[in-house]
Design a protein around this nucleic acid. Structure first.
Lengths: 330, 330
DNA sequence: AGGCAGGATTGGATCGTTCAAGTTTCTGGA
DNA sequence: TCCAGAAACTTGAACGATCCAATCCTGCCT
């Protein structure tokens, strides 16, 4: 069992003071090149590694960022955040940060979790997902000057805090235009009830595209909660209306999957496009709008490190463009 | 900006020494009840929280456990580990631990990651997933007496280290028996090439069930790498053989999905059963063997905390039973 | 009243790092 | 040669908790 290697061990071995070793690690430019090399060599030989605990105690920084992990939900939509998490972990690691996970039942408890994570673990920052109108979490964090980035726009004030998001409206617009090009005129939309930022955004892309093509969107859409069953019955409803659509754009793959079932039972010629390009969509051949999740995660890390390194208080937000993945259903 | 609350602040407020506060926190039974209450009250009033960094520096424990997160793979099989991760985070939190994520390209680099995590972050333990024959990781960890649990058996020596696993053979056996009960006789199997612990295990469940029913399994199975495409062509191959099966059990949902496509194109009456009960299976109505992932994660935390608290050096391993989720395809 | 065992409580020392303030060494211009 | 000023390096003093060893009670027995 080898002796524990501390900064003092390295200092002794390289015949310099502890502080010089610390400087080699943190501010190499103020150390003479020759000395730097000697210290670096000692570090390598001894296999020294900084103790995050000790560093953290002095500096109050932990090189840890946290992301919330949701309870295992339906598995279709959950996969989006999981993929984002994978990307986040990889990119954060490259930037020298690690990702810590936490859970929280509701917003109330999520804020309690922040409090705990900050005071106990000295967390450096948070990555929020799924922001909503008047999000209590962002106000709490901003008030305490905690660094954070949101994956999802602040729907009330776009400059409220740093964020990265995918342009949902552009995604549904692209899907709608694709269907129009294929000759469809009555393109329907299955989305969520008004009020959610993401949902309204996705609906607007479809609506504006229709309008731009001179088509009145009235009566061509439905608003339901997310889910396969909901998708199925609202699609049946849409198909049995006065002027049934010949194609439909959906706000999620769950809805699209349900719609697909309704379509197969009624009129298999109707085209369906989903949103999120989940594994399920890939498996059943569903055309879907794909979010660049890895890219989004990477940009989140960029923004967060920019804030943490003090480069800028509020770096420029990032809005990424989704792409349409064509498969059998449209 | 409130003054930072340390153990000394609490001590002053409760008119006791720091050590007594520490005792209230760590060894409450040696503190007089009256004092304990007074201290506890001060803690609540002041909103005190222990600084993990300081504690960690003195004790070398961090109340952090790590799990590896794989690069975003095909999305179908990845979801299994994601669901496990969700469960792990939730249960660990209840036990007072948090989950730290890390990535690693190969076994070599995974071991380097251990080294880093241990010396820099003083990690308490690891949860390994997907162990294989002669796993280099487990030997490395065991040698250094690092606490860890594996989700997956040590295929060489069942007492090598604490583990939790799901009885794959029982799963495929249950699936096979279900098909036999439904009147099928020639029940096929689509699995992976021999050599992987998990794969061999799942294949054996099918083989033994057939034998027990007096059926010769020879020629009824295929061994291919995992994937939808692989599932499809090997199923086509099986269906065009001399004595084609009337039902097939698969080692994964990916294979089953491929098989399903082959079946639809050839003979829709052939039954298909998958493995893992992924969201995709649920979406397409695929009957599948379901692993109790939440339970598995919980038991992993149990075993790990048992080791960490020093209760037992090597707690009893846990083998959980999977269940068959019946849907349309079988 | 004195002695004593045992539990309850306390005061330094310590973990490994960084910060702040010092001291030494180097450099170049008068 | 001397000296100012910068560069390079060193030395205590934290950070906040826990460990260790020592001290203080408290009740009980003689």
């Amino acid at each position: 069992m080898a002796e524990k290697v501390t900064i003092a061990t390295v200092a002794r071995h390289a015949r310099v003071s502890r502080q010089t070793v610390s400087n080699v690690l943190n501010t190499p430019h103020i150390v003479r090149e020759e000395t730097r090399q000697r210290v670096q060599e000692a570090i390598d030989v001894l296999g020294y590694r900084v103790s995050q605990a000790a560093r953290q105690m002095r500096t109050g920084r932990s090189r840890l960022i946290a992301m919330r992990i949701e309870p295992t939900r339906d598995g279709i939509n959950g996969s989006v955040l999981d993929r984002f998490l994978h990307g986040l972990t990889e990119t954060a690691e490259l930037a020298g940060y690690r990702v810590l996970l936490y859970t929280a039942g509701d917003t109330q408890r999520e804020i309690a979790a922040y409090d705990d994570l900050l005071s106990a673990y000295d967390l450096d920052g948070f990555v929020l997902t799924g922001t909503d109108h008047g999000d209590a979490r962002t106000t709490w964090l901003a008030q305490r000057e905690v660094a954070f980035v949101a994956f999802g726009r602040p729907w009330d004030d776009p400059t409220a805090h740093p964020w990265v998001d995918v342009d949902g409206a552009a995604g549904t617009a692209r899907a709608t235009e694709h269907l129009l090009e294929r000759g469809h005129r009555r393109v329907g939309f299955l989305g969520w009830p008004a009020g959610s930022g993401v949902g309204d955004d996705r609906r607007s892309g479809w609506r504006e595209s229709l309008r731009a093509a001179g088509i009145d969107p009235a009566g061509l859409d439905r608003a339901v909660d997310d889910g396969i069953a909901e998708g199925e019955w609202s699609m049946r409803d849409l198909l049995s209306s006065g002027e049934p659509p010949t194609a439909v754009v959906c706000a999620s793959d769950s809805l699209a999957l349900g719609a697909l079932q309704a379509v197969r039972a009624t009129d298999p010629a109707v085209a369906v496009v989903g949103f999120d390009d989940t594994p399920v969509a890939a498996a059943v051949g569903l055309t879907s709008v794909s979010q660049p999740l890895g890219e989004a995660a990477a940009r989140c890390v960029d923004l967060l490190t920019a804030v943490l390194d003090g480069d800028q208080q509020s770096p420029e937000p990032v809005l990424l463009q989704p792409s349409l993945v064509l498969r059998h259903t449209a």
